[in-house]
Design a protein around this nucleic acid. Structure first.
Length: 177
DNA sequence: AAAAAGATGTGCT
DNA sequence: GCACATCTTTTTC
């Protein structure tokens, strides 16, 4: 997914950009995954089919994931950051923030910028007309992997992926390589 | 030094 | 099922 496009339509305006940072949460052997303890009301959409949007809320913010693999497995990719490309002014409005570097750097900020809320949890992104995930040119891109951010279990699994030289990636310097 | 962000847990309805 | 607290990491002044 790194380097490809993710966007949301509000009215007749598309806002979004290029995915620069993600984290994978596995169906099994991953205690940090919401699916680890089995299917529950909160994470039930994580067990839907690939292409489902899984939204959860944490500390009054929302985070967006895209379900991967097969239905009932419970694997998903958290979208942590995008490089904002379309609808910058709309994102600034949603975020109350002018600096384009601080619009979508982190999963909570991203959802606020794109106005992704709990009502979008479980949405089928393949059928949805207000969301789009699509290919972008990825010639020569440099993808790095490392430990995921902000988790307390399975700390060492290298399941965070990011565009190595992007300025729109979250995390401190020690998370870069 | 102070603010902001964020793969949670608790507690109540 | 939903609301919200509260604490560590990361960023900014």
């Amino acid at each position: 997914m790194i380097g490809h496009g993710f966007a949301r339509r509000i009215g007749d305006e598309w806002i979004g950009g290029r995915i620069v940072e993600t984290e994978a949460y596995l169906a099994s052997g991953d205690p940090a995954s919401h699916s680890h303890a089995g299917i529950r009301p909160k994470c039930k959409s994580m067990f839907e089919d690939a292409g489902t949007l899984y939204v959860y809320s944490i500390h009054a913010k929302q985070c967006a994931n895209i379900v991967t693999q097969r239905q009932s497995l419970g694997s998903a990719v958290l979208i942590r950051a995008i490089e904002p490309l379309w609808g910058l002014d709309r994102m600034r409005l949603h975020r109350g923030q002018d600096d384009s570097l601080k619009l979508t750097r982190g999963p909570g900020m991203l959802c606020q910028a794109l106005q992704i809320r709990m009502e979008h949890d479980g949405l089928d992104l393949i059928e949805a007309t207000e969301f789009a995930v699509f290919r972008m040119p990825r010639r020569g891109i440099d993808i790095a992997a490392g430990p995921r951010i902000g988790i307390s279990r399975a700390v060492d699994l290298p399941l965070r992926f990011y565009l190595r030289h992007s300025r729109y990636v979250s995390g401190s310097l020690k998370h870069r390589s």
